[in-house]
Amino acid sequence: MKGQTRYEFLIRTIQAISSILDPSGILEKLADNVKSFFGADGLEFLVVADEDDMSFWSDKEIPHLKMITEDEIGAIPEIGRIIRGQEVVIVRVEGADDLSEGMRELIGGIPNVTVLGLPVIRDGSGIGAGIARFKGDRGVDQDDLLLLQTTVNLAGNLVFNVLMHQRVKEIGERYETLVEHLGAGMIIIQDNKIKFANNAMVELSGYSKEELYSKPFYEFISPRDRRRMLESYSRRLKGDDVPETYGFWGIRKDEGEVYVEGIYSIVPYGGRDAVVAVLRDATRDLEL
C-alpha cells in the first residue's frame, strides 16, 4: 500500500464517522472500512464503564461494542495490557492455550486467527480498546499499525463522546420529568458549570439555557451568598456532611434578586459526580 492510499483511507474514514450521531452507526462504518482496507475479519470495541453506566447500557444492544468493568479488565490479562498498560497487543492464535479464557470468550474462541488489540486513550488514560481479528497468520507492518492505531483511537473517542452525550441527555430528561409537575427549576452542576437546566429554571432566572450554560454557576448567585454556596458545593462533592436543603439569593437576568430555596444531592453525570439542585422561588415567603 502506498502512503497516499493510507492517507485517503484515514480522511475518508474520519469524514464518514464524524457525521454519524449514534455509536452503532459509527462502529458499523468503521468495521466496514477496516474490513475492506485491511482485510480484517472482525472489529470490536470495548469501553470502560462504571456500575451506573453498566446499568444504563445493559438493555441497549450496540453492534461491535461491549461495556467492560474494571474487574473484568483485571480478569483478562490481554485487555489489562491494552487498556491499563496502553500496549499494542498482537497474538497469533493457533489453539486455545494462546489466549486467556476471558479473551477467547470475547473474540468468540475462533482458532487460526491473528488478534490485534489497540488502546483507546483519552487525556492520558486508557478508556477502551479496539480488537481487530484477521484470518490466518496476518502480519501488520509499522505503517499499517500506525494507521490502525490512529483510526481506532479517533473512532473510540468519538464513540465515547456520543455515549456520554446520550447518557447525560437521558439523565437530564429523567430528572426533568420528575420535577416538571412541581413547577420547580432544576439544574445539574459539574466542574462549576451548569450542565443541564430545565424550562422552569429558565423562567425562574430569566436567562436562556445557553446563557445559563455559558458561565460558572456562582455568577448567578448574589455576592452576599456566593462564598457560602461555593463552599457547600465543594464540600458536598468531597462527601462532607452538608445540609440537603437551604436557600440563597440569586441574580435574575433583569438584575433583580430572587430568594431561592433548594434541595441538593449528588448524582452520577457523564461518568462523574455532579450536584443536582431542585429550586423554587421563595421570595414571597419572606414577605409574609
Rank of each mutant, 00 (worst) to 15 (best):
A31S: 14
K66H: 12
Q15S: 15
P63F: 04
G139S: 12
H165K: 12
I90Q: 13
I221P: 06
G80H: 07
K35E: 08
N153I: 01
E211W: 05
A49S: 13
L106G: 05
A96P: 11
A129H: 01
M201N: 04
T283F: 01
V91S: 03
Y7E: 10
P77V: 06
M1A: 14
E255V: 03
Q4H: 10
G39Y: 09
S222M: 11
L10E: 05
A200H: 12
L106C: 04
S232R: 12
Y233P: 11
R280T: 14
S205V: 02
M229H: 05
R174S: 15
E261V: 09
K195H: 08
V113P: 09
R280M: 07
R167Q: 14
G183W: 08
I121E: 00
S19H: 10
T5L: 05
R226E: 10
M67T: 04
E180G: 01
E105R: 13
P63W: 03
S205N: 05
E44T: 10
S265F: 06
L27Y: 07
H165L: 02
L99M: 12
I11C: 00
D143W: 01
S19M: 11
D41A: 15
T69V: 07
I189L: 12
F134M: 08
V202A: 07
K35D: 04
L65Y: 07
T5K: 07
G130W: 05
I131F: 03
V258L: 09
D143C: 00
E257I: 06
M103G: 03
F248N: 08
T69M: 06
D240H: 10
R12E: 15
K35Q: 10
Q142G: 00
V275D: 02
F134E: 02
I11V: 15
L163F: 05
I76N: 05
D41F: 04
V89R: 09
F45L: 08
A96F: 07
E173H: 11
D137I: 04
I194T: 06
D225K: 15
L146E: 09
E231K: 11
V140D: 00
M103D: 03
D52A: 10
V258K: 13
I73N: 02
L146H: 06
E176C: 06
P111H: 09
A184Q: 11
G128F: 04
T114F: 08
I110S: 06
S265W: 03
V48I: 09
I263K: 13
L279E: 13
G124M: 06
R272K: 15
R12Q: 15
L148Y: 07
D240F: 14
L178S: 14
R226T: 05
A274E: 08
V179I: 11
E257F: 08
D123R: 13
L212P: 13
I26A: 01
D22Y: 13
L288E: 11
G256F: 01
V115A: 08
D137Q: 06
I131R: 09
D273C: 01
G130I: 05
F38M: 03
S265I: 01
I82T: 12
I26P: 08
R133K: 14
M103Y: 12
